[in-house]
Design a protein around this nucleic acid. Structure first.
Length: 351
DNA sequence: AATTCGTGGGT
DNA sequence: TACCCAAGAAT
């Protein structure tokens, strides 16, 4: 007569759970920062960013007092940059309107920018020890296998069923360990492909394993085919400087600095499109020179080809136009840029 | 409800 | 190679 499911999970978590930096504190602010960084981001990727961020902004007030540019600079390379802007905005709201006190209810937390249903649930469960289910991607996968649920766990029906079944096993007073234990189990054992059932502490509770369906779960709705888009960018150098412009406030890499350019129209020639974009964005006439070697990068929902060109100015108006800067190659570190642009810039700076 | 938003790693 | 997916949120 073995222990219950939750007891087995908590025992495994205490013994084999990961030692992560945000688990060494009970500071709600630290938990909050970690949860935002971990949105759609692997633990190993987030850890070094978390360490640097907490060193520079050890508390809510230091974050609120910072400039958005500095926050973005620390976020550079992590992706999904609206997370950084929202976190900064939310810090200012809490300091300015809530007296610096982070809300302790899921509903109030969810009113903050960048804090959705999951993040609010995780904060109240982990930092405030409330009995709340933090239903993230790991829990969805683990729970549909445990209960052999053949519904898309991201669909409204699937989500309702998961919450109903999870509520029945959520141990009172231990939601923090329960949630994080399931997350670690999903990351280490109950992985998306080839789950390691033979070493799973919950194997004897798992209906999918009993029925041999664990590799088939979770079921997924067919995804729409990815749209394919092509982007081009110009690397424009003059006297040891390079021209950067701030991206529009909406869209890809919004608000960050990058090279002039953008998305091509359907079927548009790369040289023609690049010239069109530059002339639109900078309000100048240009002559397109020889292309540099092509960079290619794949985003989650589409594909981008970065095609650097050398260009020559037709006049001096560019220096006067707002939203553009000629930057000394050594000074590139002062501007928040997307990862790919940064890599290209570093390559230029290195010669 | 369906899309968009980055990047890195695995198969 | 091409595709999947990862501690989701906003629109």
């Amino acid at each position: 007569m073995g222990r219950g499911l939750a007891a087995d999970l908590l025992g495994w978590f205490a013994q084999s759970g990961r030692d992560l930096p945000w688990r060494r504190t009970a500071d709600p602010y630290a938990i909050w920062v970690s949860e935002v960084m971990l949105q759609q981001t692997r633990v190993e990727t987030a850890v070094p960013y978390y360490e640097r961020f907490m060193e520079r902004f050890p508390d809510l007030r230091s974050l609120a007092a910072a400039s958005q540019e500095e926050v973005l600079l620390l976020w550079e390379g992590l992706g999904y940059y609206s997370r950084a802007r929202h976190l900064h905005q939310a810090a200012n709201q809490v300091v300015g309107r809530l007296g610096g006190r982070i809300p302790e209810s899921q509903d109030r937390l969810q009113e903050l920018p960048g804090v959705g249903r999951y993040t609010a649930a995780a904060i109240v469960a982990i930092a405030f020890r409330q009995d709340t289910l933090a239903l993230d991607g790991n829990l969805r996968r683990v729970l549909v296998r445990l209960f052999d649920i053949h519904l898309d766990p991201r669909s409204p029906d699937g989500e309702r069923e998961l919450e109903r079944r999870a509520a029945a096993i959520l141990p009172r007073g231990k939601a923090s360990e329960f949630n994080q234990g399931l997350m670690d189990l999903g990351a280490l054992i109950c992985t998306p492909r080839r789950p390691a059932c033979s070493v799973c502490p919950l194997a004897r509770h798992c209906l999918a394993r009993r029925r041999g369906t664990q590799e088939l779960l979770p079921v997924r709705a067919p995804r729409a085919p990815l749209p394919e888009r092509v982007a081009v960018a110009a690397v424009w150098q003059e006297n040891g400087k390079v021209l950067l412009r701030r991206n529009p406030s909406r869209g890809l890499l919004a608000g960050l600095w990058g090279f002039p350019g953008g998305l091509l129209a359907e079927g548009e020639d790369e040289r023609v499109g690049l010239r069109r974009l530059i002339e639109q964005q900078l309000e100048i006439q240009i002559r397109v020179g020889d292309p540099l070697p092509r960079l290619k990068h794949s985003y989650s929902h589409f594909r981008v080809n970065l095609q650097p060109y050398t260009c020559q100015s037709a006049g001096r108006r560019l220096r006067e136009r707002a939203g553009t800067r000629w930057v000394e190659l050594k000074g590139l570190g002062q501007l928040p840029m997307g990862k790919l642009d940064r890599q290209l810039a570093e390559r230029l700076a290195a010669g």
